[in-house]
């Protein structure tokens, strides 16, 4: 039984990372109606910039974080303005393929710039694990979990309690009406891409020390984030958070009891099952499609 609880607790760190990824996808999807399949390459790029700042340029930790976060927001806004805006009114398939093209191109660009050999990024927090009864929580995992919860809460409050959040939600619910109400919809979409890539970038920086850092290292992580967003119904922030933690814990249980190699398979089967039973996700609302 201790193993069971230990697996649950040690799945929370990765779960929080998946949750951040899912929230990133949700924030972008809500305003722009685009599922950002380029997320894996964008977040890898941010983690590589962090490596550049920290390991290559020897910046202080605070400065390196600042550099990486600002870069993430700029990357998000630029990608939206330069590429996604061009296909804003195009069909869904064009938008999907655009993000997939960006995924390949950005990974290739990073590969050409940094090479594909793995790099190491240091853990943010060091120290002994925290004992909770008979199970242990890794200190770095605890930090990731805490940061994720704080970021989600802040984001949730911004969305629910501020005028900016109101504008973002208005754009999410109906872009044309929001525009008629005097909201700068374009700016809101840019902002959501900036926030989205910021969150995905943070998730990449947090998880990079646990796995090797390469231009493609977030691909597998992104699958779990997509799964988390699907579970959460692609739209709600709390849904994405719960979805991410659930996926993290369950895949860790699979890894512990069955095999490390079957995590992805399990997640794939779960998405397949969830979507087969509830095509709009576990927590998603039913939407009628016009096409």
């Amino acid at each position: 039984m201790t193993l069971f609880f230990q697996l649950i607790v040690s799945g929370l760190g990765f779960g929080a990372v998946y949750a951040l990824g899912a929230i990133s996808l949700t924030v972008i999807f809500n305003t722009s109606n685009v599922v950002n399949f380029a997320s894996a390459s964008l977040s890898s790029a941010v983690a590589l910039l962090m490596w550049l700042a920290l390991v290559r340029l020897h910046l202080s930790v605070v400065l390196a974080w600042l550099f990486a976060l600002v870069a993430a927001m700029v990357i998000g806004a630029v990608v939206e303005a330069a590429f996604l805006r061009r296909v804003e009114r195009s069909s869904l398939i064009v938008q999907i393929v655009m993000t997939l093209g960006l995924l390949v191109a950005i990974e290739g660009l990073d590969g050409a710039l940094y090479g594909f050999n793995p790099k190491t990024l240091p853990h943010v927090i060091h120290g002994p694990s925290i004992a909770i009864g008979s199970v242990f929580l890794d200190r770095n995992d605890a930090f990731i979990l805490g940061l994720t919860l704080v970021l989600t809460l802040v984001l949730y409050l911004v969305y629910q309690r501020t005028r900016l959040g109101l504008a973002l939600r208005a754009v999410a619910s109906d872009r044309d009406v929001a525009s008629l109400m005097g909201i700068q919809t374009q700016r809101m979409v840019s902002l959501s891409w900036a926030i989205g890539v910021l969150l995905a970038g943070v998730s990449a920086i947090l998880i990079a020390p646990s796995i090797s850092l390469t231009p493609t290292f977030m691909e597998n992580v992104a699958v779990f984030a997509f799964a988390a967003a699907v579970l959460g119904g692609f739209g709600s922030l709390p849904g994405a958070l719960v979805g991410g933690l659930l996926i993290g814990v369950m895949s860790n249980l699979i890894s512990g009891y069955l095999s490390n190699n079957l995590q992805l398979t399990f997640v794939f089967l779960m998405i397949l099952l969830v979507l087969y039973i509830r095509p709009n996700g576990l927590f998603g609302k039913r939407v009628m499609s016009r096409q």
Partner: peptide, 8 residues
Amino acid sequence: GYSEFIIG
């Protein structure tokens, strides 16, 4: 990386 970049 170049082939990925060109293709993407």
